[in-house]
Design a protein around this nucleic acid. Sequence first.
DNA 1: CTCCGATCTGTAACCGGTTACACACATAGT
DNA 2: ACTATGTGTGTAACCGGTTACAGATCGGAG
Lengths: 322, 322
Amino acid sequence: MTTIKDVAKYAEVSVATVSRVLNDRGYASAEARRRVLDAIEKLNYQPNSVARSLYHKTSGMIGLFMPDITNPFFPELARAVEDVALESGYTVVFCNTDEEEAKEKRYFDALKQKYVDGIILTASSQSASDYAQWDMPIVALDRVIGKHIPTVASDNKNGARQATIHLAERGCSFIAHLKGPAGVRPADDRAAGFEEVIEEKGLRSVVVQTNFSIKQAEKETMKLLADHPDIDGIFAASDVTAAGAMQALAQSGRSVPGDVKVIGFDGIPLCNMLVPSLTTVQQSIYQMGEKAAQLLIQQIEHGESESCEHIFPVSLIIRETT
Amino acid sequence: MTTIKDVAKYAEVSVATVSRVLNDRGYASAEARRRVLDAIEKLNYQPNSVARSLYHKTSGMIGLFMPDITNPFFPELARAVEDVALESGYTVVFCNTDEEEAKEKRYFDALKQKYVDGIILTASSQSASDYAQWDMPIVALDRVIGKHIPTVASDNKNGARQATIHLAERGCSFIAHLKGPAGVRPADDRAAGFEEVIEEKGLRSVVVQTNFSIKQAEKETMKLLADHPDIDGIFAASDVTAAGAMQALAQSGRSVPGDVKVIGFDGIPLCNMLVPSLTTVQQSIYQMGEKAAQLLIQQIEHGESESCEHIFPVSLIIRETT
DNA sequence: CTCCGATCTGTAACCGGTTACACACATAGT
DNA sequence: ACTATGTGTGTAACCGGTTACAGATCGGAG
């Protein structure tokens, strides 16, 4: 690999001059500049970013912490982050945390040692204080983790309200909510929005907890249908969960939307792949990822810790399941 | 941040001694070792990996190049790579290439400057020579790119044969193949396998090209059904493509598997979410990712360039669409 | 003609580690 | 007593950049 010394020698100047030309800082005569540029060209020189990192305590990398890329909600988010990062010259380090704080901490330590410039975090822990002491630019994505950490998320509660109201308007009178994992903020918010509307409208309801896996959703729905055969609406906490519910419904001989209406949450591509296609509450997934990356980079480059919450509106997309 | 000098001062030894204790190399008296370990503990010292990188020309990072994480085939692959990497102390840098060689090259340059240790590549270019001159440990994943580059892939041709034979055995006599993009190796291999069986059995067939997007698959299938109303079997080059076909079939009033039987390829979780659930050719996705990461790390650490192809068998998973 | 600031350039220190090498000391073998 | 050999330790060079600082040159003002 050619180094700055090689370039200096070839151009017959000092390394300082090469560095100045390279970074366009300080003085350099037209003649020197010409010779340096020529040498760089000739030797096909590319500055070593590790050496740069060492001096600047900066790496041009950002960490992306997500529970599990295998969950279909996350790839689009990751994609958006990566697109923005690339555009701004950053590189994305990819970390599946499996909702485990230990794994998160381990990654954080590793990245800190590499001078990672900042982190986008779909957090596992509830306690914002843990992250506050990380002492690094952070943006929370999808999950609110504290007032003093910039956050990008959807208006989950309102989305849940819209979904529930929609089912009610379509004539459902006994609605089940397949709730997401307890302790995961968006799941709790969606459940809260659901309960609110149920109470306002005085409807019958039942809530069961699931994780976000399709198999479990199917199983829980089967049980639900056995216990409450007269359910006529299901609000699933995610599209994947809704898909599980639909399988259970098909299996138990119920028609959708004839016997039971179903609505999901997220707006992932899956919705359009299902037959019948799934009504859902659409999140602006890509835009959220974009925004999170932009906020982080801004924070890194301008130190602005715009410590605010960016709550994205959601929109009801009515398809065939209602 | 505390540095090795701080530790040395606190422990009243030289930095060399600290380094020796840290890396367990060379001599260090029990007394010195005790003091250093104590100092590390007290000061909560963590060695700076950038400085290490600079000296060793190594970074503990591997690049993962994929066309688009948004394509549901890739997240599981990425997940597997990340799991193995983490276990071996590596960090994964994530790069969506969009099948563009320019983007690939750009990423490669950026990573090389960071002393990335190796790359797992779902290649865009056909020309293996381009990659050979990259002069870095590389493993090709999902797509064969040349004899001298270790490769992990599925037995696509055989899988396509199995799929086609299965359709024939189920009584299909006029089978359409929704082929993947031209120039993408697995797509070509699958098409070849399909053609072989068609010829052997003397069946009627038609092949149309699609990209891997669901919308386009749907559109192409509609056109196909209009041109050839008597098609009774569809072999889709991917599960997503199959989902698109199923939508078109539903839309045109045909029943699956009654009127038309459908088989996909990949074995992504989507298959189980569809109603009816999708028969497919299952790839060992996670295992492939795992193997690729293992091969790469082996190559990095032991220099073994086991330049062979690891072709994973595929298996026919029969579900409701056939 | 002198002085001043602007322009230009190179030397060397620094970022935070690793390690070659020199030196000190102990123990053992002859 | 006199090497050898094995231990233990510190100094300084090195990885490949960046930049503070000092010295040189030059044009223009006084």
